[in-house]
Amino acid sequence: MDLSSINPVLLIASVMVSATPILLAAIGEMVVEKSGVLNLGVEGMMITGAVVGFAVAVSATSPGLGFVAAAIAGALLSLAFGLLTQYLLSNQVATGLGLTLVGLGLSSLIGKPYEGMKTPTLSKFEIPLLSDLPILGDMLFSHDVMVYFSLLLVAAVWAFLKYTRAGLILRAVGEGHDSAHALGYKVTQIRILAILFGGACAGLGGAYLSLVRVPQWTEGMTAGAGWIALAIVVFASWRAGRVAVGAYLFGGVTVLQLNLQAAGADVPVALLSASPYLITILVLVIISARGVHGAPASLGRPFHASH
């Protein structure tokens, strides 16, 4: 094994790239769960975002339009989930699973003609001054715009939930929907908005996979990234900052195992490929063994205003 072939600058840079799709999906799902809704369809929305983003980016030769389309596609799919769970009061777990199955089918249907195609690349955005720093410049400050966008989004969500009135209302709806309803807040509508936001974020995350990370379209390419995003929300105890930490830790594991595979480490390939999933399980166990802190009290419970 030749560990010296692993370049730390490239390693950190690729960790940031590999963490971004999960970070986007996870921060969106965190907002959804903060409003008291458990949407297990992240994987389905992500892969739909991946294929729609790819298709639009290729057709319009514009990755930017691809991301916009992916966000819209993710939001539309999540709207189906929202209508079912909020207005038709269906079981959230089952509906989320259904959303994933629909998303997987829909994406491979849309994606068939785009297999093996190349996408226009998203140009790098080098932050002035900072990107000229000797090592840190290449490592942290010469990424594409979506990497910074995802981090800004985390900060925005954090500030929104902590400092704004709307954020407080969202949390109130998630902690006790009956009380929030009694105070006159429109529980269902607030939740629909949160679900739409989560869907758009998952769509963006998926598009980042197909447009930047891989970058091409292959069937089933999200390979559980949406589920890992769900796990990261639990890991993060529903806090924005910790979502970022979780996503970057996970990105680190993914990149490290790929590097170890490339360097010919003396570990079975199957174990390395499975390591992101095994580590996710391990992290979930550690978190739950300490007792889950911070889960919104109304999470996953249906709300029906009887009067």
């Binding site: 089918g105 491979s108 249907l109």
Partner: peptide, 20 residues
């Protein structure tokens, strides 16, 4: 396309949950 049947099956679950 083969994938359309997968979508078909997913839709079935969705409509079931909706009409439920």
């Amino acid at each position: 396309p083969g994938a359309s049947i997968q979508l078909f099956q997913g839709m079935l679950l969705f409509f079931l949950l909706a009409t439920d």
